[in-house]
Write a protein that binds this DNA or RNA. Sequence first.
DNA 1: CCGAATCCTCTTGGATACTG
DNA 2: CAGTATCCAAGAGGATTCGG
Lengths: 124, 124
Amino acid sequence: MSLRNTDVPSPRDGDCRMVREILDRIGDKWSLYVIVTLKNGPVRFNELRRQIDGISQRMLTLTLRGLERDGLVTRTMFPSVPVRVDYDLTEVGRTLLAPVMALVAWADDNRDAIQEARLRYDGG
Amino acid sequence: MSLRNTDVPSPRDGDCRMVREILDRIGDKWSLYVIVTLKNGPVRFNELRRQIDGISQRMLTLTLRGLERDGLVTRTMFPSVPVRVDYDLTEVGRTLLAPVMALVAWADDNRDAIQEARLRYDGG
DNA sequence: CCGAATCCTCTTGGATACTG
DNA sequence: CAGTATCCAAGAGGATTCGG
């Protein structure tokens, strides 16, 4: 999987596009929060809303729909009164946790370095 | 407007914010392309522009400035005529390649599954 | 309790033209 | 060649309201 240098803009720069597809999936404002919040099992709608600080009802709904559409999250409705809806990670969704944790580790290791770099850049 | 007063933000919240910081960094439209394109060594401005299909001059500049600010990319100007500017990954920037590749692997493994899930969801 | 619908604001990013 | 500056369209996302 190496990048070509000088060539026609062939459709085979799909390597990057593939990554962008997944980054578009988890790179929005809330998807990652939802995925991580679901890592220990099913959670109800309003419980998700409480645990994810700052998310609006609308965005939680939209985010869950997107994850459900991509087969990363399941939606289970219990027709009780009042209605109860559980959300959970699918098997595929659960496998996403590993790469995400790699990023967590990187962010943890380099947080200070980035912060200092920003101060240095902004300062001089 | 909250019905109950929530006290201190939970400690786990910081974990997510940290990841969001890095996702905000590489999760924009072009940063990842730049990082991957620089993986084999320094590249000049217009060469980056050629290799990253679809990026505008403005966005390449803004993306490079952001990465430079965070200490992930270096900018080296040669005062020749015409001017020549090389961009390269820093040591820190280079360590980011590993977690990114983990995501690449995940995207590769699950691309079809996601595509099928979408068709299923949209179809019925 | 769960969520759809509407409105509105702010950010992102593309197109274009100009500079050293 | 390597930018900077300006204008503008599209979309993300917050606030609010209504419905089952």
